[in-house]
Amino acid sequence: MRVWRQLTDFVARHKSAALITVHDVKGSAPRETGAHMVVRPDGAFHGTIGGGQLEFRMLDIAREMLAQGRGPARIVDQALGPDLGQCCGGRVKILIETFGPQDLEDLAGLAEVEARDRLFEVACRFEEGRVRREVSSSVGDGPRAGWRETHGEARTPVLLFGAGHVGRALVLSLAPLPFAVRWLDAREDAFPSYLPSNAKAVRMRDPEAEIAEAEPGSLVLVMTHDHPLDMAITAAALKRDFPYVGLIGSATKRARFEKRFRELGLSQGKIGSLVCPIGLHGIADKDPAIIAASVTAQLLQVREKVMKD
C-alpha cells in the first residue's frame, strides 16, 4: 500500500485522516514493525495491522482522535495476550497520528518520493507532540531521541510476454502485489483498455532486445500466441541468470523445446532451470484465472527466496 498517497487523498477529500503504525514488536505479533493502516473520519480504512481485537481497538482510538481534531500523536502499548486475549503472546507499540489540511504539503512531498517505486528511509522524531519526518538519503543511526521508518515498495520486475487469456488474468492477479509488470505483445490491439497501475503495456518490436535490457533479478513469463516466438524468447531468457523463466505449456511442449535448446548449445543446467509447465504442482485446472492464481503464488515464492538470498 502506498501509505502517503492514501493519506494525501483522504485528507484532500475528507479534511482529515489518521495513520496507525506498528511502531515496535516484541515476541509474536500479527504484523511486523512498519505495518500501516490509513483511516478516514467515517471509519473506512486501507491496510491492516493484523486484524482481531488489536486492530478493532486501534481503529476505535483513531476515530476518537479524529473526532477531537488534529492533535498530538499517541503511542499505545499493548500486551496481546493479557490485554486483548490474542494468542500471539507478544507485545506491540502502536503509533497513531492524525492529519489535517495544514499537513497536505508535507504529505504530498512524501507521496512524491513514494511514487518512485523504491524503498526509502525517513528520519523521525517527536516535535511538540507530533511526528516530524525528513526523507533520509543514507542509511545509518536514527536521530537522537528518534527513529527511522522504511517506506515505499521494492517491486520485483516481471517480463510477461503475451496478452492472451492467461496473460490478461495474470496481470490482474499481480495487480495488488509488489511486482512491476512489463507486458509485451507484438499484435495490434492486444491489450485491454484498462491496465493496473503496476503494469505497463509495450508493443513488442524486438523480444531478444527486451531480454537483453531486462533488469537483473527479473522474472520472465513466456505465453505468446506463437510457438516459434515462445522458443526464441525462452532461449534468450535462459542464456541470462534470471531467477525464474516460466513457459506456458505441457510436458510435451517442454520436451520439444528442450531438444531445440540443446541444438542451440544451451547447457543442461540452463535447460533444467526452465519452469514448464508453470504454476504450483497439484493444480491442474486450466481456467485462465486459476492458472494465474497458481503462477502468482509461484512468483511470490520465488520473490521471497530471492529477497532472502
Results as ranks from 00 to 15, higher is better:
148 R>P: 05
56 F>G: 03
309 D>H: 09
286 K>I: 05
20 I>H: 04
231 M>Q: 11
194 Y>V: 12
74 R>Y: 13
149 E>V: 08
245 V>W: 06
293 A>T: 15
172 L>V: 04
47 G>C: 09
267 S>Q: 05
109 G>D: 12
271 I>Y: 01
85 G>I: 15
240 R>I: 13
27 G>H: 00
66 L>N: 03
119 L>K: 12
153 E>A: 11
284 A>K: 06
153 E>N: 05
176 P>V: 03
230 D>N: 00
98 T>Y: 06
239 K>S: 11
259 K>A: 07
97 E>L: 10
48 T>L: 08
126 F>L: 13
228 P>Y: 13
282 G>Y: 03
72 P>N: 07
287 D>I: 05
260 R>L: 06
228 P>T: 02
103 D>N: 08
66 L>T: 08
30 P>G: 08
22 V>H: 08
208 E>A: 04
119 L>E: 15
297 A>H: 03
285 D>W: 12
23 H>E: 14
268 Q>T: 08
237 A>Y: 07
201 A>P: 07
57 R>S: 10
209 A>S: 10
137 S>V: 07
197 S>Y: 03
85 G>K: 03
224 T>W: 04
86 Q>E: 07
250 S>F: 04
175 A>Y: 05
288 P>T: 14
60 D>E: 13
29 A>H: 10
158 V>P: 06
28 S>Q: 13
186 A>K: 01
93 K>H: 14
289 A>C: 07
74 R>E: 15
3 V>G: 12
145 A>S: 09
1 M>Y: 08
34 G>H: 08
299 L>S: 14
119 L>M: 15
274 L>N: 04
198 N>S: 13
235 A>G: 01
167 G>C: 06
275 V>W: 15
309 D>V: 15
302 V>Y: 15
211 I>T: 05
279 G>H: 00
233 I>G: 04
252 T>L: 01
110 L>D: 04
104 L>W: 04
296 T>K: 10
108 A>K: 00
210 E>A: 14
57 R>Y: 09
139 V>T: 15
131 V>G: 01
213 E>R: 15
10 F>R: 13
39 V>C: 01
228 P>L: 08
116 R>G: 14
138 S>I: 04
200 K>F: 02
243 P>T: 12
246 G>R: 08
100 G>M: 07
184 L>R: 01
288 P>K: 11
212 A>V: 06
120 F>C: 09
32 E>A: 14
165 H>T: 04
219 L>F: 09
298 Q>N: 13
37 M>R: 10
58 M>G: 00
46 H>M: 13
80 L>Y: 01
208 E>G: 06
258 E>H: 03
302 V>E: 14
